[in-house]
Design a protein around this nucleic acid. Structure first.
Lengths: 211, 211
DNA sequence: TTGAATTTTCAATATTTTCTGAAAGCTTAG
DNA sequence: CTAAGCTTTCAGAAAATATTGAAAATTCAA
C-alpha cells in the first residue's frame, strides 16, 4: 500500500482529484442523517456510517470509513456489525482482497421496510407480549370487580389497537419493500391526497419547544 | 381544607382499602410502558407518568404522582409539562382546589395519533427541510457532472419517499385520531388481513429477535 | 506453521441524558 | 400586604450510552 507514513490527508476514499463540492454535499447529508438518528435513538456514528455508505455508491472498506468519519477502529467495527445485523448494509469480500468492503442497500423503499421491521421487532413485539401480563384477575364481584374490569378493558383496548397496527405493518414491510411503497401510495389515494412534486411550506412557526 | 398539619400519610391517592392486585397490575403496566419508552427514546419517567395517568381514570395531583412513582418534585413538574405539550395529558384545575390535577387522554387511537404527530414534527419535518440542502450544484459536465447527478438523484429519491410517507401520515393523524384507525383498518382490508373482533392468539410462541 | 494483514473484543474514558432537591416564583385567602 | 400552598427552575449529581484504543483473535498466503 503506497501510503507514506507522513500521510495525513483524510482523503483515502478518492485518489487525487476529489470533487470537493460533492464531498461537501455528502458530508452535509451524513451530518443530517446522524442528527436525525439521535432523535430516533440510534447512535450517531451508526447512522453516519450508514449515510456514508448510502451516498457512496461504491463499496468502502473499514479504513476508508474510519478516516472519512474520524471514528475509531473499534467503533467502526461494532457499528458495521450493527448495520449488517439490521440488514441495511452488506459485507462484500472479494478474492484477492484481504479486507472486507461494505455497501448499503440502495433502494430507499427497501431500506425503509427493513428499518421498520427492525423497529417493530424491538419496539412492538415486546409490548404485545407484555400487555397480556398486565391484566388483573377479575373477581366479578361488586365495586372491586368493576374497577378491575375497567382496567382490563383498557388493557384490551390497547392490546387490540397495537395488534391491528402490528398486523398491518407486518404485511407491509415484508421483505422486498414493495409493500411499504404500495401501502403509502394506496393510502395517499385513499384520502385523495396527491403528493406534490414541489413542497409547500404551509406552516412555518410550528413547534413549541418552549422557552 | 380538612388536612391536619401533622398529616404525613402518603396515601393521597387512595384512602384506606386499596385493591392490591389491581395496583400490582397497574404497576406492571407502568413498568412495561416505561420500558418500551426507553426503546423509543422517551425518558422513562415521562412514560411512567403517562402510564399512571392512563390506567388511573381519575385525575391525579402532582403529589400523588410523585409518591406513586417515587420521583422528585422537579422531575414530576418537567415531565408533566412535557406530556401536556405533547397533548396526551391535560391539566385540570378546579375551583376550591389549590393544586392542579392531571388526566390522560383515554382514547387509544387519539393517543396514538397525537404521539405520531409529535414524532413527525420532531423526526420527519427537520429531515425534509435538511434534505434539500444536501443536493449539490450540477455542473452538467462530463464525469464530474455524472457523479453529481447521481448524488442528486439519490437525494431526490429519498426526499420524495419521505414526502410521500409524511403526507400520508399528516392526513391520517389529523386531530381526532379517527384517521389513524380508519387507515389501519383500510390497510388491513387492502391486504386481505382481517382483524378479528375477538383477539385470537394466532401464533403463540411469537418468537423474537432470535439471535 | 509462521507471520502479516485484518477484524473483533472489551475495559476504561468521555459524552450525553436524566433526575434530584433546594431555592425562587406564583397565586390566592385573609 | 403577608403568608400558606403549590409549581417551576436549574445547577449539579447520578445514571445511561457511546467511543476509544490497544491487546487478542482470526484469516490466509506462502
Amino acid at each position: 500500500m503506497p501510503r507514506s507514513p507522513t500521510d495525513s490527508t483524510p482523503a483515502t476514499v478518492t485518489p487525487p482529484a476529489v470533487d470537493l463540492e460533492l464531498a461537501a454535499s455528502q458530508d452535509r447529508f451524513i451530518a443530517l442523517w446522524g442528527e436525525m438518528a439521535s432523535r430516533w435513538g440510534v447512535p450517531r456514528t451508526v447512522a453516519e456510517t450508514h449515510a456514508l455508505l448510502f451516498v457512496h455508491s461504491e463499496p468502502l472498506d473499514v479504513e476508508s470509513i474510519m478516516q472519512r468519519l474520524r471514528i475509531s477502529r473499534g467503533n467502526a467495527s461494532m457499528t458495521l456489525r450493527t448495520l449488517v445485523e439490521w440488514g441495511i448494509i452488506s459485507r462484500q469480500m472479494q478474492r484477492g482482497e484481504r479486507r472486507e468492503f461494505f455497501r448499503a442497500e440502495q433502494d430507499v423503499w427497501r431500506l425503509f421496510a427493513t428499518v421498520a421491521r427492525a423497529r417493530k421487532r424491538r419496539e412492538i413485539d415486546p409490548l404485545l407480549e407484555g400487555l397480556v401480563g398486565c391484566r388483573v384477575a377479575s373477581t366479578g364481584r361488586g365495586r372491586e370487580g368493576t374497577q378491575r374490569s375497567t382496567h382490563n378493558d383498557r388493557m384490551d383496548e390497547l392490546l387490540s389497537a397495537v395488534r391491528l397496527l402490528d398486523g398491518v405493518s407486518e404485511r407491509f414491510t415484508a421483505a422486498d419493500g414493495r409493500g411499504l411503497r404500495t401501502a403509502a401510495v394506496a393510502l395517499a389515494k385513499l384520502v385523495g391526497f396527491i403528493v406534490p412534486a414541489q413542497k409547500r411550506a404551509e406552516r412555518s412557526g410550528i413547534r413549541g419547544g418552549g422557552t
